[in-house]
Design a protein around this nucleic acid. Sequence first.
DNA 1: AAAATTGTTCACTCACATCGAACGATTTAC
DNA 2: GTAAATCGTTCGATGTGAGTGAACAATTTT
Lengths: 248, 248
Amino acid sequence: MSKTVKSDERLFTIMEALKQREEAGVTELAKAVDLPKSSVHVHLSTLEKHDFVVKENGRYSLGLRFLDYGMIARNGRELYDIAKVKVDELSEKTDEQVWCITEENGKAIYLCGGSGEHAIQTDTYVGKQAELIDLAGGRAILANLPEPRRSEIIDGYEFGPESAFSDRETLIETLDTIRSDGIALNTEHYVKGVNAIGAPIIDNTGRVYGALSIAGPTHRLKGDFVENELSDLLLGTTNEIGVNLTYK
Amino acid sequence: MSKTVKSDERLFTIMEALKQREEAGVTELAKAVDLPKSSVHVHLSTLEKHDFVVKENGRYSLGLRFLDYGMIARNGRELYDIAKVKVDELSEKTDEQVWCITEENGKAIYLCGGSGEHAIQTDTYVGKQAELIDLAGGRAILANLPEPRRSEIIDGYEFGPESAFSDRETLIETLDTIRSDGIALNTEHYVKGVNAIGAPIIDNTGRVYGALSIAGPTHRLKGDFVENELSDLLLGTTNEIGVNLTYK
DNA sequence: AAAATTGTTCACTCACATCGAACGATTTAC
DNA sequence: GTAAATCGTTCGATGTGAGTGAACAATTTT
């Protein structure tokens, strides 16, 4: 790993601790990150000066300056621009939850989503980070990533009873199936009672931009309906997005 | 101003410079912020390690980690949660652009927006920061802010030919009118060809949460239609949100 | 093939981030 | 109603590590 700035690292640690609570005081944060109050205090003051945190009668919380940066980061992605309309269409047509994710530094990030009227509610939100391996869409991405890259990511995983896959071989087999099928069907559910399917978004050059997924209750997403009807709808949409990304 | 961490300040300067371009190299950024390449480089490495920037073949750009923080900051606001549905409804009903803004550190921040099919296109985006004084919604907020607070913000303004108001008195007069009217009608347009109206969102305790605004082309937003029909629609919505915020 | 950029690394040095103690201002306890 | 506890904030002493410019390697341009 290359050299980093310790002060920045501390800043990020404090930010992360603050993110995990709605709001917090200096003492509470100092305890959480195991640093002197005075240190935490100057960092918070610096953050506040630049609107990255807000102070309301002595309690700190995340500022909306992050929203500014976050939206610009998202709007800069061609994938987002092209996918958002299609995601809305697909969620309305299927009446289920539809998500568009992308890969960044080996992790999955939710770019945007849409929900039909009867769609399930989950704790997922735009901007959320997750492991590629845990999501239907993430597996679809992983399965289609070029080889030096894919192994780099997989090397970072720990297999075992905690993981969704017991060992590396099982994962590779699953990914191979997903690649040849063109779609990932989550039979082993990440969340209990929820099924999901995911398909990769790839342009004509083979570059993997991300994936789309449809999630719904197991009693609706099963059998022929998922394997044929829904899969075709999903693949049609990801295909369309892929083409638009090629000739943008 | 209280003490701050210089390293953090530098970090923010680099982030800001990066935000203003789609992507950039180390040398370009170093020139922009007037710092040695090596300094910019370690800060970027630190940012990259935490997913706040992404490096793609030597060029840096904002990472999606900001989206994570930004969405959590936004979702934590009760105003957003309650307003977003109403904003969508209102934009559909009026077929114009509708925005919900809030105030943070004396500045306006766009929380969410909706657009009718025939709505105008502007360079506004969710998360964008603007001066309260420049927006119809911002003036509606300013007009209803409690007194010690309002003056603090106004004290930060510079009046003159550059500003929308020539002097402090003119602004105060306008704000008084807005407060008694309950609505801000932008006759002097912030953007040429665009008219806007704004109304504050206030709960029963008098706390100002933000404002809603409707923007559209001058040829559609004029005369009786704006002053009666649209105004009533807007006030009805902000009223509703205010009540919901009281009994949440 | 040479020249001019690029991103990255390294070691020296003094600015400044860190820290614990002390300060007022609140809040809690009784 | 007072005392005790806890809060956020300030400050000066100290030694860590951020900043720096030069050198390096890897591109890209000429």
